[in-house]
């Protein structure tokens, strides 16, 4: 699965994975489980973003639209049709994937910053539309107020649990799925095509790779997973609104966690979220509400430092360090 990894790296990955699985037997209080769930959730979201953006080398700052749309589909299917969120989130993810094709088809022709700005524009259009629409052809969207998922009590079918623990394991399972999916993609034809497009788009095209087609395939998978993550978030908080689930802040979080950790790698985005989210959490709790926005100041500074000193993400120097410790060759 991680063919290029050294023995030490594999050992470390296994230890971290085992730690995550057994974490709830060490820490039990709901607050810490909640925090751990959020870290895993952000890892999942960053990894979903990375699935297309990291590999194809385009910066999307509009991914939150997939999270939001799928979240709304899941919640509405539950409240309006009584459909289980487990099925609803698949529909939501599918819906996000279709939407991503509609957005991606025209925009993937654009390069660099133009692509980025267009993704922001699409996401903002959707967010503003949701915020200002109370009722769309009979569907109660409730505008900026958002939707509350009615409480039904401890029920697997309704994706509602009295304790935090089940949510944690669901998030962890989702993370495992995206890690495996990315690892498979990386070694499949799709992965090689995407990396070729990232390296030299015109060159890849000259070799007969259709850049738009393969970018779109990756984007739709990425949007599907992002949508699943959005549905999870809506169920976890039993609440969804355009600002939190569709706003640019979420897109920025996903992107910078990936970039700081190391985009275009299987584990980089997870490393990024494991570094950044705890910072946000500590900034918020230890300093109280007195410093609103402190964690984003730190995110911004870390982002700037990473771009300047580790343009490929923190995972690269980390792997070199590990290789040196184990005495292997530095790649």
């Amino acid at each position: 699965m991680f063919g290029s990894a050294t023995t030490l790296e594999r050992a470390l990955i296994l230890i971290v994975a085992a730690f995550l699985v057994f974490l709830p037997s060490i820490v039990r209080d709901p607050y810490h489980i909640h925090t751990a769930t959020m870290i895993v959730y952000f890892s999942f979201m960053a990894a979903s973003w990375n699935f297309v953006c990291g590999y194809v080398g385009q910066l999307s700052l509009g991914h939150s639209v997939f999270s939001g749309v799928a979240g709304y589909v899941t919640v509405l299917m539950f409240t309006q049709m009584g459909l289980s969120p487990w099925i609803g989130m698949l529909f939501g993810g599918f819906f996000a994937a279709v939407l991503s094709l509609a957005i991606g088809f025209p925009t993937f022709r654009l390069k660099g910053p133009y692509f980025t700005l267009t993704t922001i524009a699409f996401a903002e259009i959707m967010r503003i539309w949701f915020e200002n629409t109370d009722n769309f052809i009979g569907i109660p969207l409730k505008g900026s107020e958002g939707l509350v998922v009615p409480l039904v009590g401890d029920s697997f079918w309704a994706f509602q649990f009295n304790e935090k623990l089940p949510y944690y394991y669901i998030a962890l399972a989702l993370l495992a799925i995206i890690v495996i999916a990315t690892a498979i993609m990386e070694r499949s034809k799709l992965g090689y095509y995407l990396k070729a497009i990232r390296g030299d788009r015109d060159g890849a095209e000259a070799l007969g790779i259709n850049p738009t087609k393969y970018s779109l395939i990756a984007l739709s998978i990425s949007a599907f997973f992002t949508g699943i993550g959005g549905a999870f978030f809506a169920q976890f908080f039993r609440y969804i609104n355009p600002e939190r689930n569709m706003g640019i802040d979420l897109s920025i979080d996903m992107a910078i966690m990936s970039i700081i950790g190391g985009q275009g790698t299987v584990l980089g985005p997870i490393l990024g979220s494991f570094i950044l989210h705890p910072i946000a959490e500590v900034a918020r709790t230890s300093l109280g509400g007195s410093f609103l926005g402190l964690h984003l100041v730190i995110y911004g500074a870390v982002l700037a430092l990473t771009v300047l000193y580790f343009p490929q993400g923190i995972i690269v120097p980390l792997r070199k360090l590990l290789a040196r410790i184990s005495g292997g060759d530095v790649k």
Binding site: G57, L59, P113, L292, L296, Y299, G300, L303, A304, V307
Partner: peptide, 16 residues
Amino acid sequence: LSALLLTAGVFLVMDN
């Protein structure tokens, strides 16, 4: 893109 990211970092720091 690296310039855009770098200034995005500046944006986050300044706004917050």
